[in-house]
Simulated scan of single mutants.
Amino acid sequence: MRAVRYLDAGVVREGTLTDDGRVTPQPAPAGTPALEGLITGRFTDHHVHLQLVDHARLAGSRLGRVLDLGAEPGWIRGVASTAAPIVAYAGPFLTAPGGYPSDRAWAPAGSVRGVTDAEDAATAVHEAAAAGAAVVKIVAHSEAGPVLDDDAVQAIVDSAVAEGLLVVAHAEGAGQAQRMARLRADMLAHAPFTEPLTDAEIDAQVAAVSWISTLAVHDETHQAIAIDNVRRFAEAGGTVLYGTDMGNGDTPIDLREAEIIALRAAGVDGIRLLTALAPLPAVGTDALLLVPSDDPLLARPLTPADLEA
């Protein structure tokens, strides 16, 4: 038995690590040896593409939950029903006919759903819900082809609300981040990287949407824009979620060091960084991480040897 500090919904609490490797919320008796470091559940990556990676390797990673934002719906439903870690998903990209990423060789067959109009938008959302989706993903990439008009986007959002789904938007191109916030998307799949946002635009974003980081996937110029936007967004009280766009290039199938470093460059560190990683609850599971010095880059699975040290 060890006295431990553990993370509970963004708050560090005192608890007990029992001999079977589980955390209980009761503080340990006086004199109980303490385990150095912070205990958390495994982390969340809020932007992955499991069809583009060897997803079986996630089972040995520090990730306990992922959000897949673009896959063939039957395939991802099958993976989510059998795989570790927890897999939530959007199903296909919802885009304008001929829009991004329908012309990309990397996009698996069935992973892109063209939406023709507002009526078809409602049908597409119903299809996603029937396939077990937790979110729907709108594509608004004006630099790579046609985008959904406001009426279609609004129909997707309204239908998603009716189906109990959140809306994630890929916003790329001048004005698209502001447009998606105005049209009531819940999250941006990428922290805005096309252009620096004004302070007024940052304030509007804070009031409307959360940002999934994905800072490390960009070239130097776009990463600098995204980091500055995230810094001001976080300072203004915006919600930043850790996400890597796993599968976009040579990304690790685990926690991504470059993403953590970029988030720290944007001022997202300490408890704010750990909160962005959205660990699963530490109480009630044996899939725990030990985080030395409260630094997620040092996180490793808790082992029986930690109880013996």
Rank of each mutant, 00 (worst) to 15 (best):
L273N: 01
L280R: 00
L280A: 08
I260G: 10
T285L: 09
D250I: 14
Y242L: 09
L241Y: 03
R272F: 04
G267N: 05
R272G: 12
R256I: 11
L273S: 09
P279I: 03
I253E: 13
A266R: 08
V240K: 00
A278T: 13
P252V: 11
M246Y: 01
L277D: 01
T275F: 10
L263G: 09
T275R: 11
T275C: 13
G238L: 10
G237P: 05
E257Q: 14
R264I: 10
L277S: 10
G267Y: 05
V283C: 09
Y242E: 04
P279W: 02
T275Q: 14
G270S: 01
P252G: 14
A282E: 10
E259D: 13
V283N: 12
L263A: 10
L273Q: 07
A276G: 06
A287M: 09
G284Q: 07
E259I: 13
A287Y: 07
E259A: 13
P252W: 12
L280N: 11
I261Q: 15
G237L: 13
P252D: 12
A278Y: 07
G270H: 03
A287E: 14
L263V: 01
G270I: 10
A258D: 15
L255I: 04
T239W: 13
I271L: 15
A262R: 06
R256P: 01
E259F: 13
L273Y: 06
T244M: 13
L255E: 06
D250M: 15
L288Y: 05
L241K: 11
N248C: 15
I271E: 11
G247K: 07
I260P: 03
T275Y: 01
L280W: 05
